[in-house]
Design a protein around this nucleic acid. Structure first.
Lengths: 111, 111
DNA sequence: CCGATACTTAAGTGAATACCTAAGTGTTTG
DNA sequence: CAAACACTTAGGTATTCACTTAAGTATCGG
């Protein structure tokens, strides 16, 4: 479970709707802090705190040029989170499928 | 964004390693509260609190028969979370792919 | 029917979150 | 060079979170 610390902070980061809205915006391309802040009805420092959470989780990277900080979404942590869920859903659903088969075999496929 | 409230609580629920360990256990089949608690080094009430979080998020459902409560994983919220991430990752990566194409076209495919 | 089992409820605590306002620090622009 | 701009830092508050212990409440097994 070496990937656990990343999953923790990534799931945590994605748990907040404001941060998900920032991720949605960034999935369409890089953006400045002000651009990320624009649709959110909160102070700029609050937005920056959300951005910190996203950066600490590795989901977002940013660099400052002049006075504007440009933020980008990172694919890797997104893939890690998607992978974790996909595995568990696959385990669950294959088991549910087999259960369906058993029920079919026991009671007949057209019940 | 009608699915947002579910995503909130589902991501939140999955942000904790104890709760993810419970989900992992349940992806292999139904389990009682004590079975979920066994590998976790915390009190039973703490485990039940985590279970409540999982249930309120819709990820887990449970029913009590006699004195034992049996918990199961629900596929739907797992699919919703996976879908949200898949969409955003797809947007991001297709954009990164196109960026790669542009760089290739500008500088040549073998640099 | 009595003790063990499997939770369940209640109440409390310390740390982490999600905001805020106010006052900075560098960068550009007129 | 002064004002506007894009953050950045500092500090404060109210709520939520992740636990804890202690004391219940229904089963079930002998």
């Amino acid at each position: 479970m070496a990937t656990a610390p990343t999953l923790d902070s990534a799931f945590q980061a994605l748990a907040d709707p404001s941060r998900r809205s920032m991720v949605t915006r960034l999935s369409r391309g890089p953006a400045s802090v002000s651009e990320l802040a624009a649709p959110l009805e909160m102070s700029l420092p609050a937005v920056v705190q959300h951005l910190d959470v996203l950066q600490k989780s590795g989901l977002v990277r940013s660099e400052k040029v002049g006075r504007v900080r440009t933020c980008r979404l990172e694919p890797a942590p997104l893939r890690a989170v998607e992978g974790w869920i996909a595995e568990h859903r696959a385990d669950l659903e294959s088991r549910l499928d087999r259960l369906g088969d058993v029920l079919d075999a026991t009671f007949g496929r057209d019940g």
